[in-house]
């Protein structure tokens, strides 16, 4: 399998390195090389190249918010918009720290789907009433508060439906 990313073509070894990093980004080049049967210097070179080309955007920590006592609520907000204003509404939503993800979608109407976190239902409502409803082009909003999370994962080489 080969993947092209602008000027960089990824081969099977690159993809295996990415998969290894997605499983554990803190493992050493030697450990990755050993598992893949390649030299640690090769792993180093390829990782550096993928960092330079932006294939690897950053290394981060996944935090269990329950364990640090953060009592946040998560909501999925669907914003129905005037098609002429939807890009601008989506961009404004992206500026808000409470908004974690923003997508546009076309079903029967053009809509924006956003994942929002808030300290409480009241603060969620205040945010939507004061900062989302007044945006020009917002026609109406439907919000679903998440009651239980069954899965949350980022795209991974491991769960790529094509592989």
């Amino acid at each position: 399998m080969k993947v092209k990313n602008s000027a960089l073509t990824l081969d099977a070894t690159d993809l295996e390195i990415l998969e290894a990093l997605q499983n554990d980004a803190r493992q050493t080049y030697t450990a990755i090389g050993k598992r893949l049967g390649i030299a640690h210097s090769t792993v180093y070179d390829r990782i550096k190249r993928m960092e330079q080309y932006g294939v690897i955007e950053k290394y981060t920590a996944i935090i269990d918010t329950d364990k640090i006592g953060a009592k946040n609520i998560t909501a999925l907000m669907t914003v129905f918009t005037d098609p002429k204003e939807s890009e601008r509404v989506a961009e404004k939503l992206c500026e808000a720290p409470q908004v974690l993800e923003v997508y546009t979608s076309l079903s029967e109407e053009l809509l924006i789907i956003a994942k929002v976190v808030a300290e409480s239902q009241e603060s969620l409502h205040t945010f939507i009433a004061n900062s989302v409803a007044p945006l020009p082009g917002v026609l109406r909003i439907r919000t679903s508060i998440v009651t239980k999370k069954f899965k949350e994962a980022r795209f991974s080489m491991v769960n790529d439906p094509k592989s």
């Binding site: 907000m77 409803a133 909003i141």
Partner: peptide, 8 residues
Amino acid sequence: FTSIGNYT
């Protein structure tokens, strides 16, 4: 609104 986050 009709409920929390649901703007009419």
